[in-house]
Nucleic acid binder design. Structure first.
Lengths: 213, 213
DNA sequence: TATCCATGTCAACAACTGTTCACACTATTT
DNA sequence: AAATAGTGTGAACAGTTGTTGACATGGATA
């Protein structure tokens, strides 16, 4: 007993503490908290490490914010991939898109909630990162639309216009569903139906559109 | 010099300190802050009163939040009134709606930014208050739509469906415009054009809609 | 003129915040 | 077996936070 050895009882989470920090932060943000209301100390407390331990994995909270954006968009992109591989008729495709959306929302609640609430939230760093990612998604969607037979002739400006309208509608639907699905299964299917209707109504107008009247 | 009189130099803002608190809070929230990242102390510091003075006007921060929602929606409702009095043809009406929207956004930046960012933000109290107000606005819009000649026959469910699609598109446009108008006047008119196109595209689909296929 | 109420001030509290530094342990590589 | 890089600990710092209670002021009312 020469040196004060103290018993740290460290938990030795080999290499995944960083991921645990990300997941825990996302979970905490799912409830009544926004990112800039989340403190480093309550996060580390929840994870079970000492405050200073945070700095082993991130230089500061902004860096954590960016990691959260990364994590959240990973699942969002998965939806687009699913849809891309679906080569059904436009009408059946609508229902398929919405179903895929709901499935991903259920599986990645916290991630979607994060995007929704921080898209216009307090932290400029996070906000801009989200905006950048969404713009990318919109471009991808425009490219996908260009491949559809009856949109072949369209110019890119109009394609982007439709893409943004669709994306906005879907994001809005996602948020509504997100909000209700936790407690109300019946309301969820009602919102799904409405989301389908929104998409269908938009697509109804498309054939009648004429650019630059 | 019997009693320690101390020189309070109170500013005597007769009855409008409450309003100043609301306005200042909105202004502060316009920048890089979210409501639950806003502290009572920094607010009162900015306003120029001592922290405890806050409690003369609000029991707690939640109450302030509700007052902010109130204030922010006051201007949003003004838009609908403007539009309601406009009895032009559907096509010209679209342009008029967007122009009215932009005008109000410019005049009430902070209020719109608050609604946008706190709609899915951290505070449950504020979030629910906003959601309730938006639902009201949507209902009003549905009623307005019912008066349009070629929508007379529609059932209420479908009317609400359109109303929500339109409202979502407008809110999304408002937020985009809000974000860009501070620094980029050219980008603003581009976004206005896009907002008009979104509305027009939606309205194009409406005559072809058939309920319950 | 006297009183009263709305609005402000000041001091103090315990609790919480981000960040620093030097140190301890351990798994993997040398 | 020794060295190393990764990860967690503990104490300490100067600031900030929400909320309390008792007190001061001044304009309107009685």
């Amino acid at each position: 007993m020469s040196t004060r050895t103290s018993k740290p009882r460290r938990l030795s989470r080999r290499g995944d503490t960083r991921q645990i920090l990300v997941d825990t932060a996302l979970t905490m943000l799912d409830g009544d908290k926004s990112f800039d209301g989340l403190s480093l100390r309550e996060l580390t407390r929840e994870v079970g490490i000492v405050p200073t331990g945070f700095y082993r994995h991130f230089p500061d909270m902004d860096a954590l914010g960016l990691a959260l954006v990364d994590e959240a968009f990973r699942s969002l992109r998965k939806i687009l991939e699913d849809v891309r591989q679906d080569t059904r008729s436009a009408d059946r495709l609508v229902a398929s898109v919405v179903k895929s959306l709901v499935r991903h929302i259920r599986a990645h609640r916290a991630g979607f909630a994060f995007i929704a609430s921080e898209r216009f939230g307090g932290s400029a760093v996070v906000r801009n990162a989200i905006r950048r990612e969404l713009r990318l998604v919109q471009t991808e969607l425009a490219v996908d639309l260009a491949r559809l037979p009856y949109l072949k002739e369209w110019n890119t400006t109009d394609l982007h216009m439709i893409a943004s309208l669709i994306l906005n509608a879907m994001v809005a639907s996602a948020i509504d569903i997100l909000d209700v699905s936790a407690r109300d299964r019946e309301g969820e299917t009602a919102l799904m139906k409405r989301a389908e209707q929104h998409l269908r109504l938009i697509l109804l107008g498309v054939p009648h559109w004429q650019s630059e009247r």
